[in-house]
Amino acid sequence: MTFWILAPIMVAAALGILFVRKAVHAALLLAVVMISLAFLYAVLDAPFLFAVQIIVYTGAILMLFLFVMMLIGVDAADSVVETIRGQRVMAVVLGLAFGTVLVLGISQVTFGVVVGLDEANAGGNVPAIANILFSRYVFAFEATSALLITAALGAMVLAHRERLTPKAGQAELAAQRMRDYAEHGKHLGPLPSPGVYARHNAVDTPALLPDGTAAESSVSRVLAARGTVRSAPALADDIDDVRRQLAGLEGHSDPAAMPETSGKAGAPASTEEDVDKHVDKDVDK
């Protein structure tokens, strides 16, 4: 029963891996397949593997996948255009042929009576596995330990980056910055923080320059790549709203002079938290 519930889910999730465009989604679908597999292991009288499947595969390996994905860019989505001519068609044709032949071949086989693991698992599955693992398979076990150590070392070696040039110190960095300024006119000072002089102080809101335009460099590149940066024109209404409120609050102030004075003479009440509330209210309206 469990099988017939889990099998369609697993096949559907597996097929999903083929079609989703984002790697994260593929990883999640793979997790579904693996957890389902764990349950199937439990059904198949393999409680130890059930645990290992959950802990090692779903827990460790998949997390590793997600971790690497994070390092190299979660947002990177596969293009759907196939670059190698005929690759996709041939892959599907060969895959279908392979699957069909395998399934047909297996269905031709008569497996006979299932012996079952009741006898083997008599003293518990884990002690039984331990018995075999540390007797008959002890060499293989030791070999896998060596393999794991090697793999760990290998991963360290691969991930390690040798520094080829001396690390630039503060003096060098400062000199470089001055040089860039002299040659390209690159802004010398610190970058503006997101949300400065803006309606929002969220990271996706660019800072406003004194002339009212948005400073694109104040927002993370990743957000810019995702297209989730909120532009200054989109915030224009909010800004006007704030000006109106401020004008209403103080009555006599020149709205255009407000930003300049807000730092010194600005009312303590005009905190950004307040502004947020106002905006929320506006949105609600």
Partner: peptide
């Protein structure tokens, strides 16, 4: 052609042939 996936495709073709031969 340098594309790993092309090589893998021939690998699958070979596997198919092996399975067919076994059958």
């Amino acid at each position: 052609n340098g594309f790993v996936r092309s090589y893998a495709l021939s690998l699958l073709g070979g596997a198919l042939l092996v399975v067919l031969a076994l059958l």
